[in-house]
Amino acid sequence: MRAHRSRVITIATILLAVATLAACLTVLLRRTDGGSDDAGRPVPPGVAPIDLAREVADYTGRFGPGHGYRQPGRADREDIASAIGMLLDGQRKQAEQRLSQRDFTVRTVVDRPSGRRLVEVADRTDAAVTPRGWGRVYLDLDHHPSWSVQVPHPGFDLGTEQLGVRVLRGSPGGILVIAGAHRKAGVGNSADVAHRTDTVFHAICAELARRGMPGIQLHGFAASAAPDYDVIASTGAGTAAQPEGRELADALRGHGFAVCRAWVRSCPLEGRTNVQGHAADADHVPFLHVEFSPTVRAGGQPAERAAAAIAEITRRWAAKPVKD
């Protein structure tokens, strides 16, 4: 009787192990064959499954000073920005045609870790020997786009591009706008998109502001620039985002960060000359200019806590109607 019970227990244990192994293999196959995203939903035909963090890392990892940027003409900037507007208006075919004329591609992707569908707008020259460096945009397809997270200095303010991915994943309705070159890639400051109005990055951000979409722009500072702080929060050139700024500073403090509030005291790197902030102010749209220390931008728990604090603001933005 005891031997029979032992055999039954052994067989049950083996069956349980086999079932567990089968489940693990099923998940692994789903992740590698593109059949389902990590949220368990089937990936529609023609939709590319990606890991957005890895995609952005591969993209920005090629950036460097002294190369990879060509200044766009006015027609380039206006056409690309207006095409982004067409995508927001649901006019995808027209947007694709206009973007194609400017050597940009449009595709639908699924970010497997979040399960969210996105429209990717990318410069065709990114993989060329001499890329133009005009940037990339990701728009949330599963929710009505209503706010933006902007990364003007990828590869220079290290880690801001990955923080941008975390912020996009943290709330519905986001648009991630990434500059296409290192800050020092062009002649003079031509690739410093935070301080130039003649860039594709600025044209896109200005179009979003014109549509009433609030934005948060991510920057990084050297530890020696503000040794007493982890974050420097500012509303840039305007004051429309002061309520959100106070809420964000409180949320960041609640997550254990020391925050310098530029509307309360003099802080370094307040972003008063930021041109996207000026455009938002002209349209009376909330804009937040946020600088992070190297520790926060390095990833891991500090970056997760920072993104969680930002999500308290972006979720509120997502719930508000956007003007046409």
Rank of each mutant, 00 (worst) to 15 (best):
S6A: 15
V8N: 07
V8S: 11
I9H: 04
T10K: 14
T13K: 09
I14C: 13
L15A: 14
L15D: 01
L16M: 10
L21V: 15
L21Y: 14
C24Q: 10
T26K: 10
R30D: 11
T32D: 12
D33G: 03
A39N: 06
A39T: 08
R41E: 12
R41P: 06
V43T: 13
P44C: 14
P45M: 10
A48M: 08
P49W: 09
L52C: 03
R54S: 06
A57H: 06
Y59F: 13
T60I: 11
G66M: 04
Y69I: 05
Y69N: 03
R70I: 03
G73C: 11
G73E: 01
G73T: 07
R74Q: 13
A75N: 15
A75P: 12
D76T: 12
R77S: 07
A81D: 10
L87D: 02
A95W: 06
E96P: 05
E96W: 05
Q101Y: 12
R102S: 11
R102F: 11
D103E: 14
T108Q: 13
V109H: 14
V110Y: 05
S114V: 06
V119H: 04
V121Y: 10
T125S: 15
D126N: 11
A128Y: 03
V129L: 11
W134A: 00
Y138N: 01
L139M: 12
D140N: 08
H144C: 00
H144I: 00
H144T: 09
S148K: 00
Q150P: 03
V151I: 10
P154G: 01
L158H: 08
E161V: 03
Q162I: 06
L168H: 08
R169Q: 11
P172A: 15
G173M: 01
G173H: 05
I175T: 12
L176E: 09
V177T: 06
A179Y: 01
G180E: 07
G180D: 04
A181P: 05
G186R: 14
S190D: 11
H195I: 00
V200H: 06
F201A: 00
F201K: 03
A203T: 02
R210H: 04
R211D: 00
G212I: 00
I216K: 00
L218Q: 01
L218Y: 03
L218R: 02
H219F: 08
G220I: 08
F221Y: 05
S224D: 07
A225V: 13
A225T: 14
Y229T: 02
S234H: 11
T235G: 09
T239R: 15
Q242C: 06
P243V: 05
A251F: 10
H255C: 13
G256R: 15
A258L: 02
A258N: 13
A258C: 05
C260M: 05
V264L: 15
R265A: 15
L269H: 11
E270R: 13
N274K: 05
G277Q: 02
H278D: 02
A280M: 00
A280R: 04
A280C: 07
H284E: 03
H284W: 04
P286G: 04
L288C: 08
P294Y: 09
T295M: 08
G299A: 01
G299Y: 10
G299W: 08
G300K: 07
R305G: 09
R315A: 05
R316A: 14
